[in-house]
Design a protein around this nucleic acid. Structure first.
Lengths: 136, 136
DNA sequence: CTTTGTGCAAAGGCTTTGCATGCTT
DNA sequence: AAGCATGCAAAGCCTTTGCACAAAG
């Protein structure tokens, strides 16, 4: 599974400088970043943290709901600060171009489907793959 | 990227007995199976094929459009025979329960978004994660 | 005879875990 | 002093690749 949330009360994960650094770096980036990219970003910014710590920080941030995570088709997990407006992506399978799209209808659809089946929506992952205008 | 489709004409990938076995095994299963699960299924069915062959067969089947592939949140890629009706999933992040949902609206939405941006839709991936009735 | 498929084992990439150390409380 | 956070390195998992051999055209 992606999250670990079962046993009720969340012990209020500690907010350490490293975790803040990770969260802020992600917020600054604005879009999706992989753990390794973030690790690099932090290093470039002069903040030296271990890769494992980045992974652990991200796991915690996801758990407390400050960060969203999704898995790309190549299997890498990417993270994004929760703040920004929610949107999805159109990805060109040839050149890799990515276009962000936002449309409430999908969000509504997801909630509705979940409600219908007694689910409590936590997250949804919607990515559309195809060929962009230039590659057709 | 997930697919390799660029250079126009597809050389008609060869249809060998192993590939047929993989395709059929997947069709029989009906739902999503990972490469490793399929490898196991085939072994159980008495069809001995190497794991690498299963991966290669699946890659080809995806390329020629006989199989759909999607990546789960844990990073594993799962495959499904293209035939069956297209649907998406509601996945419980706690117990793993999966519910299939079908609704044209998402399909329409995906096509529309793509068209609006000049994309040619090839595939889309829509999964909703949450907690099911039993786990709430 | 040339081309493509197959197996096996090794290599790769991303992520998690074990263990000792350093802070925080 | 007790408990969690960190780093580093090792281990894990899924997937891909290299290479030699067999099969198909």
């Amino acid at each position: 599974m992606t999250t670990t949330p079962p046993t009720a009360t969340r012990p209020t994960a500690r907010l350490t400088p490293r975790r803040e650094a990770v969260a802020q770096c992600l917020a600054t980036a604005g879009d999706f970043r992989s753990a390794q990219e973030l690790h690099g970003d932090l290093a470039n910014a002069g903040t030296k943290v271990g890769l494992a710590t980045v992974y652990r920080a991200l796991a915690d941030l996801v758990e407390v709901g400050r960060v969203d995570a999704l898995t790309r088709p190549d299997g890498e997990t990417v993270y994004r600060a929760c703040s920004g407006s929610h949107h999805h992506h159109l990805v060109c399978t040839e050149c890799g171009t990515t276009v962000e799209v936002a449309d409430d209808r999908v969000e509504q659809w997801a909630s509705e489907m979940a409600r219908q089946h007694g689910f409590d929506v936590v997250q949804h992952q919607v990515e559309v793959f195809g060929r962009c205008a230039n590659c057709r």
